[in-house]
Each structure stands twice: as C-alpha cells, then as structure tokens.
Design a protein around this nucleic acid. Sequence first.
DNA 1: CCTATTTTTGCATTATATTGCTGTAATAAG
DNA 2: CTTATTACAGCAATATAATGCAAAAATAGG
Lengths: 249, 249
Amino acid sequence: MLKEERHRFILNEVGIHNRVLLTDIASLLDVSVDTIRRDIKELHNSKLLKKVHGGAISLGFNNYNPIGKTVYSLEEKSRIAEKGISLIKEGQVILLSGGTTNLELAKRLPSKFKLTCFTPSLPIAVQLLTKSNIEVIFIGGRLSKDSQIAIGGSAINMLSEIKVDICFLGTNSIHPVEGLTEFDWEIVQMKKAMIHSSRKVVSPCISEKIGSLQRFKICGVEEIDVLITELEPWDVKLDAFKNMNIQLL
Amino acid sequence: MLKEERHRFILNEVGIHNRVLLTDIASLLDVSVDTIRRDIKELHNSKLLKKVHGGAISLGFNNYNPIGKTVYSLEEKSRIAEKGISLIKEGQVILLSGGTTNLELAKRLPSKFKLTCFTPSLPIAVQLLTKSNIEVIFIGGRLSKDSQIAIGGSAINMLSEIKVDICFLGTNSIHPVEGLTEFDWEIVQMKKAMIHSSRKVVSPCISEKIGSLQRFKICGVEEIDVLITELEPWDVKLDAFKNMNIQLL
DNA sequence: CCTATTTTTGCATTATATTGCTGTAATAAG
DNA sequence: CTTATTACAGCAATATAATGCAAAAATAGG
C-alpha cells in the first residue's frame, strides 16, 4: 500500500469520525503502528489534522479552542491580502472563495466605500457581517465540515445566476503546466462555477503552493488574470508564469 | 478516548450549560475524577474555561452579571430548547429559523443520531458545523446585519425547493387573535416561506412574547402546530390558545 | 537488466505521557 | 467546630513516543 493511499485513508477517517486511534488505523491497514505514527506526523506538519497522544484529531473547528490555528504565514498572507484589496474599486461586486488567505483579505476590506460581496465561506461571511459598508450575500448550500464552505448543486446553481467584477480564488495548488488543482472534488466544482461567474479572476497564493499538484483539476493557468504572491518578481519559481498572460503582483 | 476529545467535550458542555461538575463529566465519560480534574486544569491554564471548586464554569459567565436577566431567560430558553429537541426523531430533516432560542436548540441537538438541518442563520450554521452527525445546509441569500440571517428572493427561492419534517420558527410576537407578527418585512417573507416548506411548524416562544404584537403579520395562529413555552399549562396567558388546534408544551 | 542510492518500513530500546489509586491537606457547608 | 467533599502530590502500571538500526522496497543511472 502506498504512503499516499494511507494518508488519504487517514484523512478520510478523520473527516468522518473527527478522530482516529493510532492502533485502529494500524490494524485496519495492516501496517505497523510506527508507520502510521510517521504518517500522522507528516499530515500534522502539513496542517491537515492534529496529532495528539494516541492518535489524531480533526482540525475541525470547535468554537472554543483555537487549537493549532497558529497561522504560520500570517505575515505573508497579510501582505498578499493588502495587494488583493488594492485591486478593488468603489461599488464593485466581488466574490470570495474560502481559505485563510481570503479570510485575511475579508478582514482588511476597506470601510471607506460600499461593496457587495458574495461568498460561500462561513467564516468569511461572519467576518464581513461586522462591516457596515459591505453588503454580504451568502452562497447557500450543503456545508462542508472541514473547509466550512457551501458546496453542492444548490450552491453551484446560485453561482450560475451571478456575474461579479472580481473573484478572489483561494488556491491550494497552482502549477505552470497543470494549472489549478484541488484535493476535493466538490470544491473543484465550486471553484469552476466561481470562475465562470467572474469577469476577472485573482488568485492570492502563498509561494509554498506554487508548483504543487493535487488530484483534480480546476482550470488551466490561462483562466487566471492576476496571480498575487509574496515572492519577489525575479524569483525563479515565477519564471514559468512569465510568458503567460498573467499579471504578477 | 483521547485526551483532546475529552477537552472538546468539556468545553462543549461548558459552552452549553455555563458550568460543569467534575463528577458529572467523569461519569459521563467513564474516567476517573482525577483525569477530569487534570483536564480542567489544563483548559484553565489555556484560558478556555475557569476552574472552580468542584468543576468549571465558562469564562464569560461572571461577566454576565449576578442579578442577570440574561441568565434568567437563558435558563428558560434552555428548557424550551430541550422540549423542542424531544420532538425530533432520528434521520429527520429540520429547519431552524434564526433567534437565540433556536440557537440554544441548535447547541443541544443530540449527537446520537443523524440529522439534516437547514437554516438561514449564520450563528446557527456555525454552531451546527461542530457536530459531525448533522448535515448542515445553509439557505443562502443577502445577509441581514442585525438578525444575521439570509433574506431576500434568493433565500426564499431556495426555501421553495425544500420540504422538511419540522420547522422551528423563532417567534418575536404571538397573539391569539392576530397570530404571528414581525417588525421586519423581509423576515416576514422568510418566515412565510419557511412555514410553507414544512410539514410541521413548532414555535418555541418564551412567555414575554406571548400576546405581543408587531407591525407585519406572518400568519395566523392556526398555522402553528406546536407552541412551546416555559409557562405552566394552567397559566392564564395560554387560555386563549387552548381551544385552537395547537399542542402546548 | 543490473547495481548503487535513497526511501520506506518494522523492530528493539529507551524515554515520556497518561491514568487511576493512595493518603493527606484544603475547602465548603451546616 | 465538625463533617463531607474536593484538591493535590506522589507513585506505579500501562500506553504511547522517539530514536537508531537493519532489511526491504522503490528509484535512478548506466
């Protein structure tokens, strides 16, 4: 059995049961406890679950405890968010997908002028509701426990009925050849619909996600109008994007 | 059971009841009192609750105030919520409107069996997302800043496409002759749509709202199937409702 | 196809964490 | 003041984590 398979299995179990025991997984997959321990350590480091004594537990939020929510790259995310905000003009209609970068962006949206803001993300909606100058429209649908965004047909339907000025598309993986990819199929569908509903697509993306690859494809890089990263313009990681028709910030 | 799980459980209990007894938790989770004591000490050190002699209390609890009307009506709301929950059966599909009473109800929804839960209320959705046994579907739409629920055509559209087993309709004013009334026109529209989408309408309603009247009418009393209040059955305030076809709890 | 190199895995060992129990001190309540 | 309950410290039993190492498997280069 491949390591990747085990990782998926573990994440799946955590997704379903919110917790797993080291020993259970080991016997289910018929490998040693050490192996699973190492797997969980890796997943923990990738912030996909929380390693605890005896097993692992979902990051899934619980109102009260800010477990492991120490956002590493908060600083970079802030800078990216600020850049993103500079693209917004008074009175525009914007669409925010989920993700922590977009949440940072939402927090920083200006209170100077009116905006209309669509989002399928619960935390972002909560954040935006505190701002009196922003009209918030929630894209409804079935809520995904881990990503905390609405997914499914109903949400995609609602997206199909709108056309916004700018979409800020939180991005898990962007690759110069393969384009944007995602781990979760339902989220792929959502993101496709979001791109379709937007005149301009902006992808705020911290550098560690550039060049990575996941299972499902959302779209090619050519669908993205603006890529915002914290990297310096001459960084080698960006070379591959340079002769495409993408604005780099 | 993992330590982290106990921690979450305790925090959850504290969140709901504002206080917990060491011994209760210990017997509920079937571990020794010492273990829970140590758990609570850790949570206390992380400033997630306040350790007190014999148990723990929520951090905000003291701030609320000792003479507290808030706490008083919270207690009643809890009782009403518990009653409401007793109406729910395994696997049902329910619809929760907004309001603090429904939020209390959402917090207390059982984790024993699967449920599907529609709601246009942001705080309720946030609450429900923490429960792994409940599928949450958010009724999307423009979010009202003060009531924090989705309103407007899009939300009403989405409501028109569903039919649920029970609707818990948070109620601002109920009057034996005039029926249910509301202050806000948009919310009236939402509630009308919710009633229309439900086989059974339950109105959890603390007594101070009985007999009061607001500007716009939602529906007559006859549309309500069950009225839950904290009043005793012989209370004079309820007389007017008695010869109607309403179940009083 | 074969071999060198790297990665992955399981096992043994040692270190650490968790838990319940004991006895004793502290605290609340009458 | 007395009594019952709760808190705490220390201890032992058990479970889990970390580490180093060797065998097995995968990978890369020729």
